[in-house]
Design a binder for these strands. Structure first.
Length: 267
DNA sequence: AGAAATACCCGTACGC
DNA sequence: TGCGTACGGGTATTTC
């Protein structure tokens, strides 16, 4: 369940392993990974291009290539790694890019939700997305104005990538809890004070996630400890860390939602 | 037009 | 044990 912090973690991990590499080989095991291009088109276009930079926009990893941009979205279960050429393939290694130094970038994606999109311009491709929550330009005032313009419930709005880019279900629940806001509150009903708190907490939970290298959650089924450091997400029926009230799970906009009914009054 | 619901996937957890 | 089923999650697409 990579959200902004998990994607940012991968960006930082991939950057030193990918920048400066030239793509000399392609292996596609799942054609739809590269839609809307056909595998043959994808391969023909990407071969020979050098990776100039690795960046992030929303939940996309952006690989700046010689002539194009490659955007990788991990969706639910995707993960990236760079391994030595010849390393045996893992079960769900669907897309592999071979580099000029005997290493390979492997896109493992158990649920096949991810995408590797080759485009002329990442900016154009992501133009419809909302502001970056960690960008200095994203101020509390900007958030307040955007919330004022909406009649929707708070949570579905925060998850709408055209409203705000990079926040997913987990960090959304965490930010709302930290702000004492009920997920069904009407966006435009928030006071300036409430928005200021929400703005601060959105950024805080994201920064915290990045600081922990996105390792707070067992996202992509990496074996071992399933420990996480969240206050409400995944803590249904467990006591609220603030007041002890059992955490409730409800469904908001089709999404599992975790709240403390005491700390996040619906009224 | 805008908002809500559905489709896309499959590993996992659960019930019988 | 093994089979069947519900569930989750981000976003493009479809429906309301």
């Amino acid at each position: 369940m990579p959200e902004l912090p998990e994607v940012e973690t991968r960006v930082r991990e991939m950057r030193p392993l990918c920048v400066g590499r030239t793509i000399v080989g392609v292996r596609l095991q799942w054609a739809r990974h590269v839609e809307p291009l056909l595998p043959s088109e994808f391969e023909q276009q990407i071969l020979g291009q050098e990776i100039l930079a690795v960046e992030r926009r929303a939940k996309y990893l952006v690989f700046r290539l010689s002539r194009q941009d490659l955007l990788i979205h991990l969706r639910m279960s995707g993960d990236l790694s760079v391994v030595a050429s010849g390393t045996p393939y893992e079960k769900h290694d669907h897309t592999t890019l071979g580099f000029d130094n005997h290493t390979e970038l492997r896109f493992n994606d158990a649920r096949k939700f991810g995408r590797a999109t080759l485009v002329a311009s990442a900016e154009q491709f992501t133009a419809h997305l909302g502001p970056e929550p960690l960008d200095p330009a994203f101020t509390a005032v900007v958030l307040y104005q955007r919330l004022q313009n909406s009649n929707r419930a708070l949570k579905p709005l925060l998850l709408d990538q055209t409203f705000l880019a990079g926040v997913g279900n987990i960090y959304c629940d965490e930010a709302l809890f930290a702000s004492g806001l009920h997920p069904l509150r009407l966006a435009s009903s928030l006071s300036e004070q409430e928005v200021a708190l929400l703005w601060q907490n959105i950024r805080q939970v994201l920064w915290d996630g990045i600081a922990r290298n996105g390792a707070s959650i067992d996202w992509v089924y990496r074996g071992g400890s399933q420990q996480h450091h969240f206050a409400v997400y995944g803590r249904t029926h467990q006591p609220c860390l603030t007041c002890g009230t059992p955490i409730q799970r409800l469904v908001v906009g089709q999404r599992g939602t975790h709240i403390c009914p005491q700390c996040q009054p619906s009224g």
